[in-house]
């Protein structure tokens, strides 16, 4: 009996230790983005493919390069001082001749394959269908803003009579 209680306490301690010390290490850390980027402000001036320039042509949508940004940002255009402070970072990158260090999110599992071109250009699906209201956001997310599951993908594929063959996405 005493032994059982001892074991129980030991397990509880171990559990508590794991919960308090080990597990938090795996807590998803928000990624530091190089600047406070407002999708909303940009979406008012441009379209999705204006900055994600490869979305209609390639599997990857692409994150904007400094060159893409400077195509529009010719000098400081923001009105508010706090926005100008962000915009000035572009000037600094240009002076230092380095790319914008965007922190992209880990992509899909390595056996899952996805093509933006297939969905956005060929099947003409609105970006918001999957990316929800990202166009309304005022800052860049530090964590993935939504979770894609196979069930969720399949629901749409079935509804649209797209391929539900395993090899369409898994190889």
């Amino acid at each position: 009996m005493g032994r059982a209680v001892f074991l129980l306490i030991a397990v509880a301690f171990l559990g508590a230790f794991l919960y308090l010390n080990v597990l938090p290490r795996f807590s998803p850390q928000p990624r530091a983005q190089p600047m406070r980027f407002s999708h909303k402000a940009h979406f008012e001036e441009s379209t999705c493919e204006g900055c994600h320039v490869y979305v209609m042509e390639h599997g990857a949508a692409g994150t904007p390069t400094l060159e893409n940004c400077l195509d529009c940002h010719d000098g400081l255009q923001s009105e508010k001082a706090e926005d100008q402070k962000e915009e000035e970072k572009l000037v600094v990158y240009e002076e230092e001749e380095r790319e914008i260090p965007w922190a992209p999110f880990p992509r899909l599992a390595s056996h899952v394959f996805f093509s933006h071109r297939r969905h956005a250009a060929v099947s003409e699906i609105e970006c918001a269908t999957c990316h929800e209201d990202i166009a309304e956001s005022l800052t860049l997310p530090g964590n993935p803003p939504y979770e894609f599951t196979m069930k969720w993908c399949l629901a749409c594929h079935e509804e649209q009579e797209a391929s539900t063959d395993c090899v369409a996405c898994h190889r």
Partner: peptide, 17 residues
């Protein structure tokens, strides 16, 4: 061998496009 099944996906994408 998968008959390069990833290529059928690409070929379909291109044809549909």
């Amino acid at each position: 061998c998968t008959f390069c099944s990833h290529r059928v996906v690409k070929a379909r994408e291109r044809a549909d496009g």
